[in-house]
Amino acid sequence: MGVDTILTDGIIPAPVRRRPEALLQVEQLSIDIATRDANVRLVDNVSFGIGRGERVALVGESGSGKSVTAQALMRLNSRVKLSGRVNFDGKDLLSLSPSQMAAMRGQRMGMVFQDPMSSLDPLMTIGDQVAETLRIRGISKRNARQRALDVLDELKVERAAERLDSFPHEFSGGMRQRVVLAMALVGEPDLLIADEPTTALDVRVQERVLDLLDEISRRRSLAVLLITHDMGIVAGFADRVMVMYSGRIVEENEATLLFAEPQHPYTRGLLEAVPRADVTVDRLRSIPGAPPVPAARPSGCTFHPRCDRAMAICSSVEPGEAITPSGARVRCHLYGAG
């Protein structure tokens, strides 16, 4: 089955060139949090789209706002204030009632987090947990259980039928992450948001989980928003990459082009700062300083204090969005647009 899907796309799936029909459209999303002292902007005016079946990666470091963005799309964090528009398949998510949003989460959008244990109820069997969203939708116990079993099979959980009645602690880390994926996928959503889904896993397990995700997303035409700090896992998985720094998307492009011709000094720096297991270099090019905390964000371009190509304008004027010849959407004064 997996083979068929791949063969139709050619042996090495070509990067998606055409813009697929938009499933999610985020426009000028800002996220603020009120602390005791002040209002802190966590995410500043972010716009992007995800097409049906498209795999998009959102890459950033701590404090970049990548996880807050993911939570905002699912409206999971009630402590933050959202502004802007999040359009999912024709509906404005930010104006839905809590119960409409809950239905959305169960049926149209799924989410997995870094730590599978925190998403699992230790006192509930795997089968019941995977079937839960279906039961809430009123599907009979027997049907729900059957579909839970199908999803676990699809995720290649061995002896899934026997293990429906086991508990989370009886599973290894990688297996738990598959169960969590099953919970997110059993309702057959159109979009899966995966927040650092493999960060806690060893490399070989990480690879297997990503392979599964890749296969399922192709077979089901499932759109995936992969949130990560690791450029390595992005490269083999995503069609398109967005790089986030200090609450803003600083660069966005097709994966192949972004890696071949990184435009923003931050993207370039990130790629050169990470050692590779397949080549030996004498010295890594490091980015000085540390990513800013949201409450103390530098003026102008937030990257300017760490940037080796900073100009006078960078510290005072926030760069607008420019499109480069390579097709990158980039926010940097090196590329003209003010």
């Binding site: 090495i12 799936p13 990067p15 490399v203 070989r204 990480q206 690879e207 990503l210 392979d211 890749d214 690791d230 450029m231 390595g232 896992i233 992005v234 490269a235 083999g236 998985f237 994966a255 192949t256 890696f259 790629l271 990470v274 590779r276 297991a277 397949d278």
Partner: peptide, 14 residues
Amino acid sequence: AVPIPDPAIGRARR
């Protein structure tokens, strides 16, 4: 299994 930050290598391996 180590991810390599190069889409061509990553896709070919997968």
